[in-house]
C-alpha cells in the first residue's frame, strides 16, 4: 500500500492560485470554500515588507486531531496515508474543525448551489456536513491522470512552477521521498504532534 504525501516548495510558489482553482473545479467545491487555499500574509515593517503565500491543503496527518475527536467515526484513516471523510456519518458537530490546527476543514453552512459542471467521480455533499481535501482520492484510486508515469492530484498537475509535488513515500526513489530529505523540508506545526504528510521546502 502506498503512503501518499505532498511536498510544496515555497521558493518556487508564485501565488498564482491556480492550484486552488483547479481543486475547486476538480472537486466541485462551492463558493466561499477552499479545500486547498492560499494563505497570504504581509510581514515586516515598512519599508522592509514581504508578501508571503503558503498553499494549504489538508495535511493528511498521521496522527490526525480531527480523526481523534470525531464522535461518530466519520473521519477515518484510509490506510494509504490519507485521512478521509464519510459524508453519510457526519453529524455536523464541527468538533473536527475546531481540532484541526490548519483550518483545512470546511463546513457547509448553506446548501450547495447547482453547478454547470459537477465531476461525476466526486461525491456530492449535503448542507450540514464537513468536507475537506481528499488528496484527489478518486483520481489516485483509479490510477488514471498520470503525468510522467506518476499519479497526480489536480493541484500538483496544474502547478505551472512545479511547486507542488505529489508522490509515494514508500518508494524511496520517488521525487517526494528525495525532496523531504532536503534540509529545507519542514512540516507545519509539527510541535503539535500531528505528523503531517505535507512537507514544505522553505
Amino acid at each position: 500500500m502506498a503512503k501518499w504525501a505532498m511536498v510544496i516548495d515555497l521558493e518556487r510558489c508564485t501565488g498564482c492560485n491556480s492550484c486552488a482553482i483547479a481543486c475547486k473545479y476538480e472537486n466541485s467545491v462551492p463558493i466561499g470554500m477552499f479545500w486547498r487555499r492560499l494563505v497570504s500574509f504581509t510581514t515586516g515593517e515598512y519599508p522592509n515588507i514581504r508578501h508571503e503565500v503558503i498553499p494549504r491543503p489538508c495535511m493528511m496527518c498521521e496522527n490526525a486531531p480531527c480523526a481523534r475527536v470525531c464522535p461518530t467515526g466519520a473521519t477515518y484513516y484510509a490506510g494509504d496515508g490519507t485521512v478521509q471523510m464519510n459524508y453519510d456519518k457526519c453529524i455536523g458537530c464541527k468538533y473536527c474543525m475546531i481540532a484541526c490546527p490548519y483550518g483545512a476543514r470546511q463546513y457547509n453552512f448553506k446548501k450547495q448551489e447547482e453547478k454547470p459542471y459537477h465531476n461525476p467521480d466526486v461525491l456530492g455533499r449535503e448542507k450540514g456536513v464537513v468536507e475537506k481535501c481528499t488528496f484527489c482520492y478518486h483520481r489516485i484510486a483509479k490510477g488514471e491522470y498520470k503525468e510522467k508515469g506518476h499519479r497526480m492530484t489536480a493541484c500538483a498537475q496544474i502547478c505551472p512552477a512545479g511547486t507542488t509535488v505529489f508522490g509515494d513515500l514508500d518508494d524511496p526513489k520517488s521525487l517526494v521521498s528525495r525532496l523531504i530529505r532536503d534540509r529545507r523540508a519542514v512540516q507545519i506545526r509539527a510541535d503539535l504532534g500531528t505528523k503531517p504528510r505535507v512537507y514544505y521546502l522553505k
Binding site: 480523526a67 481523534r68 475527536v69 470525531c70 464522535p71 461518530t72 467515526g73 466519520a74 456519518k89 457526519c90 453529524i91 455536523g92 458537530c93 464541527k94 468538533y95 463546513y107 457547509n108 449535503e126 448542507k127 450540514g128 456536513v129 464537513v130
Partner: peptide
C-alpha cells in the same frame, strides 16, 4: 439545533471512543 445533521446524532453514541464528544453523549 446547532448540529448540521441533528437526526444523525445517534451515531455519536456508538462512534469513536477516543472522542470526548462521544463520552459526553
Amino acid at each position: 439545533t446547532e448540529l448540521g445533521k441533528p437526526f444523525r446524532a445517534i451515531y455519536a453514541v456508538l462512534g469513536n471512543p477516543t472522542s470526548i464528544l462521544n463520552w459526553g453523549t
